[in-house]
Design a protein around this nucleic acid. Structure first.
Length: 550
RNA sequence: GGGUCCGUGGCCUAGUUUGGAUAAGGCACCGUCCUUCUAAGUCGGUGAUCGGGGGUUCAAAUCCCCCCGGGCCCGCCA
């Protein structure tokens, strides 16, 4: 959890014992520019006691050392915090523990499962939203104070990967097992599945061997998956996405967990021939075992979740909206039928679609993430080449690389996961306005200021409204982290970064830092330094790096 | 067909959970500012029946109902 001085608590406390007790949650952060906090009092404003209540309340509030203003305006009580209090709150935290807001290590261990794409080909833009949201959410929860691990559940036991293995074996047995060659076999076996006798004839025997289990075969297929997985992992690393653990499905085929799952479900399991399923309250049959005795993905996934529940307190799964109903069933079976008492949460996101057409791995109608990164890198180089500054080749390449990575991540994470996205190159490449470079650029200017400004030991703590506005935005960082964690919305951090950047740009254009007055210079330099630390911190939550120069 | 999510200026996005002050940013377009710390920037302007219709309320982008449009799900695939 976060530890910081929340002024709302004190404001609310000022009403204790009075006719109208204000709760901290009644003290809202103003978004319309009237004040810092607002309390809505429409309901009480026309009561005969309201006048005397307000005068007592406002007097109590005004006597608090951090209050600059507290007044009634129509249906609202507008409250402002003094710049000095914001400044000292943030600075004190940074001076003592190095960051604002401070984190109190939460004992809860969290596992965020994300990506988990079938290792049957390179990752594409439709999938990458999962990885970007998942990685960002893991970083945000970690910043909040949880002990977070990320996991990728690797499907190395399903029909798709068997087709990957079988396709290569049948059609290109002599070619090297590269991602490209494996893909060729995969696509060929699916295109010829009918003439080969159908899925059951082609993959059925392999499925059977998994149940025996034929460990040599399982090892072999796992090896094939690993080849594709390594390329996916490399792509993800280019976007600063590092997954802590890759957990293989094959590890749950015969293990203790799957035995336990079936044991716990014994009373709930129903039969249809030799097949086994459970009923959900909403009338769906969820099958765990086929009539030929082989197990379905759900069985292995339940085992995997029991494994996660054994090691973690909170389980977060990042899933596409196509898995929404599946997730509901999974949670029902785990929590209500098996009795897992750990918190299980799903972060469901809508798909990224291509304009006019669908993303389909089978049809080869995809834009790979590698393509996206490469093109973003080229765009960034073009833009840099058009700038006036002098850049060495290495500097230029590094800036382009970071801008490209940040842009790809930012342009995807900034949209509410719930909202569908249509992929357009011009949006993905956006570097003006609400974009990653907009944020990065402001940071670089701040760095430049700190480099060029003569230090000052003096601090005059008279903040003007622009400085105050920036401080207020810095202070809101804590609130945004909390809201982002509570609502599982990494996009809120993106929104926060844009607001913070706008506040700094305002400060930059109105407040000259490098001035003769030692007190003013000291104060503004300190504000600039605090801003740069917060923006770097917040950008990090989205896996973005900021650059000293660009 | 049933379920579910989405629909906000020409385009993209925030605001919807918890109803309240002039619906907020960005792109594009028009104009402003480089002899003040980086112009990937700043300031200003044009532009919105908040998909449509009803309802609840003193008050609706926000809650309820119906309709329209789109995504996704409705496998003994994963």
């Amino acid at each position: 959890m976060l530890v910081f001085r929340d002024f709302r608590d004190d404001v609310a406390r000022a009403s204790n014992g009075s006719r109208l007790v204000i709760k901290p949650s009644d003290v809202e952060i103003d978004s319309k520019g009237f004040a810092d906090y607002v309390i809505r009092v429409f309901r009480y404003r026309h009561e005969d006691w309201f006048g005397s209540w307000f005068s007592a309340f406002s007097e109590a509030v005004r006597s608090l050392d951090f209050i600059e203003r507290c007044e009634l305006s129509g249906d609202y009580i507008n409250i402002s915090i003094s710049g000095k209090s914001l400044f000292s709150t943030i600075k004190q935290s940074m001076d003592t523990v190095g960051v604002f807001p401070e984190t109190f290590q939460d004992p809860d261990r969290v596992v965020v499962e994300h990506t988990s794409a079938n290792p049957t080909g390179p990752i594409h833009v439709g999938r990458i939203r999962n990885s970007i949201i998942g990685d960002s959410m893991a970083r945000i929860m970690s910043r909040y104070g949880y002990r977070v691990s990320t996991q990728y559940f690797v499907n190395d036991s399903g029909k798709q990967v068997m087709a990957l293995y079988e396709g290569h074996k049948r059609f290109f047995p002599d070619s090297e097992m590269t991602v490209d060659n494996l893909m060729k076999g995969y696509q060929k076996i699916y295109s010829e599945m009918e003439s080969l006798g159908g899925e059951d004839a082609v993959l059925g025997p392999l499925l059977k061997r998994y149940e025996i289990p034929d460990t040599a075969l399982i090892e072999e297929i796992r090896g094939v998956c690993t080849i594709v997985l390594n390329s996916i992992r490399n792509t993800l690393l280019k976007l600063n996405i590092k997954i802590d653990d890759f957990v293989f499905e094959s590890g749950f085929l015969q293990g203790e967990e799957i035995a336990r799952a079936f044991e716990m479900l014994e009373g709930s399991l129903r039969a249809e021939g030799a097949a086994r399923y459970v009923d959900t309250p909403w009338g769906k049959k969820e099958f765990l075992v086929r009539s030929d005795g082989t197990k379905l993905y759900l069985a292995r996934d339940l085992a995997y979740h029991l494994f996660k529940a054994d090691h973690f307190d909170v389980i977060v799964d990042v899933l596409g909206e196509d898995h929404k109903d599946y997730a509901k069933s999974l949670k029902y079976i785990l929590s209500d039928l098996i009795g897992v008492d750990k918190k299980i949460e799903f972060l469901i996101y809508s798909f990224i679609s291509l304009e006019g057409s669908k993303l389909s791995t089978r049809q080869g109608n995809i834009i790979t993430v590698e393509d996206l990164i490469t093109r973003a890198d080229q765009e960034a180089r073009k833009i840099i080449a058009g700038k006036q500054g002098e850049y060495s080749v290495e500097a230029m390449e590094n800036i382009a690389k970071v801008v490209a990575t940040n842009s790809v991540r930012f342009n995807i994470v900034r949209v509410n996961p719930q909202k569908p996205m249509v992929f357009r190159w011009e949006d993905a490449m956006n570097t003006d306005g609400d974009s990653a470079p907009f944020i990065m650029y402001s940071y670089s200017r701040a760095f430049s200021i700190m480099e060029k400004t003569r230090p000052s030991q003096k601090l005059s703590l008279e903040f003007d409204s622009t400085e105050k506005g920036l401080l207020w935005n810095m202070y809101l960082y804590a609130d945004f982290i909390k809201r982002s964690v509570d609502s599982k919305r990494p996009d809120l951090i993106a929104f926060y970064l844009l607001n913070l950047t706008k506040a700094f740009n305002d400060f930059y254009s109105r407040c000259q830092v490098n001035v003769d007055d030692d007190g003013v210079r000291g104060r503004r330099l300190e504000i600039t330094s605090m801003y740069s630390r917060i923006v770097r911190d917040a950008a990090g939550l989205l896996g973005m790096n900021v650059l000293d120069r660009m």
